[in-house]
Each structure stands twice: as C-alpha cells, then as structure tokens.
C-alpha cells in the first residue's frame, strides 16, 4: 500500500485488514506515505520543466501501475485529470 500526499490539506489513513483461515501461515502488511520527492522535482526542473509540469510527470509516474490497469479510454482521461487537479496544488 502506497500513498502520495499532495498539498498541505490532505492526509492518508490506512487500515490493515487481513483475513486468514489457515493457522500455519505468517502474514504481514506494509504501507508507506510520502510527499512528492524534492530531489525528483529538482531533477526535472534542472532539465527544463517548470514546477507544475514536474509534479504532473512524477505523480503520473507514481499512479502508472493503477492507470495502466484501466481500459485505454479511461487511462487517457485519468491521466489528464491528474494533471488538471494538480494545477496550483504544489507546495
């Protein structure tokens, strides 16, 4: 489970829930929450992208596994939605 926080008015709550019907198994759960990485943003900006473009690129990369699983037409739209909803949310 991975979460990405964007902007200063958000949070993430993860509730682990694992149902096991086998008394000999060992199970684990894991979750990470991160902000958009400063080093990644600086790397993109050093190559010429402005801050919004850099955030959109990094966030879309983060979401790629999920977006990729969507049917083609939804995936395209979802990608654009991510870019639009990020406008002005950097900081």
């Amino acid at each position: 489970m991975r979460q990405l926080l964007i902007g200063d008015k958000c949070g993430a709550h993860t509730v682990p829930y694992i149902e096991v019907k086998n008394n000999s198994s060992r199970v684990e759960h894991e979750a990470t929450t991160s902000k958009v990485d400063e080093d990644q943003l600086f790397y993109c900006r050093q190559r010429g992208m402005d801050e919004e473009e850099a955030v959109a690129l990094v966030v879309n990369g983060f979401c790629k596994d999920v977006l990729q699983a969507l049917p083609m037409e939804f995936a395209m739209e979802a990608q654009q939605l991510v870019a639009i909803s990020l406008e002005g949310s950097v900081g």
């Binding site: 990485d37 080093d39 990644q40 600086f42 790397y43 993109c44 900006r45 050093q46 190559r47 010429g48 992208m49 402005d50 801050e51 473009e53 690129l57 990094v58 879309n60 990369g61 983060f62 979401c63 790629k64 596994d65």
Partner: peptide, 30 residues
Amino acid sequence: EERAAAGLFLAFQYPVEIPGVGNMTFLRTA
C-alpha cells in the same frame, strides 16, 4: 528551469530515479 533553458546543464553525481516515468517520455518532456 530558467537556468536550464538559458543553457546550464548539471550532470548529477547521483542521478535521481523516477518510477513509472519512461526514460524517453522524460527526455521528450525536457
């Protein structure tokens, strides 16, 4: 990004990983 567009390039000592973003996409965007 303005410095970059003005022609300044830094080859990083530790190049940064960007998961989910194809190398070609990154290059073309830049």
